Simulated scan of single mutants.
Amino acid sequence: MFKVLRGNPTPEELAAALAVVQARAAAASSAAEAPEELNEWSDKARNVPRGGLPQPGPKAWRSSAWPR
């Protein structure tokens, strides 16, 4: 239900506003129903090297960029 507080919108403007509100409500309800698919490209674990992160110690900054 809409209530116009100011102005005098045309029927076309009211229809456009209603269409936007309905579209956003439908998108929000469908997003809440469907679980998000797991995307391996966005997985944060991909950024950690297989051997783990370099251990702190003398000259650790040098080996931080070396391939393992």
Rank of each mutant, 00 (worst) to 15 (best):
G57I: 02
P49M: 10
K3H: 12
E40H: 09
Q55P: 00
A15N: 12
R62W: 10
S30F: 02
F2L: 14
L14G: 04
A65I: 10
A32E: 08
L14C: 08
A65Q: 14
A65S: 13
E33K: 15
V48M: 05
S29W: 00
F2S: 07
L18C: 04
K44T: 04
A25T: 13
R62F: 11
R62A: 07
A15F: 02
R68D: 15
W61V: 10
W41N: 11
N47K: 14
D43H: 06
M1K: 10
G52D: 01
W61G: 01
S63D: 08
A15D: 15
S29D: 12
Q22M: 09
A65G: 11
L18I: 03
N39E: 10
N47M: 13
M1A: 13
A28Q: 14
L5C: 07
A60P: 00
E40F: 14
S64H: 13
A23Q: 14
R24C: 04
E13R: 10
L18H: 11
S64E: 15
T10K: 04
E36S: 12
P11N: 14
P35V: 05
E40W: 12
T10Q: 04
G57H: 03
R62G: 00
P35I: 02
A27M: 13
L14P: 01
V21N: 10
F2R: 15
N39L: 12
S30I: 04
E37F: 03
R50A: 14
A23D: 14
V20W: 01
A34F: 03
P49N: 06
G51E: 12
W66H: 15
S29H: 07
A31E: 13
P58V: 09
L14N: 03
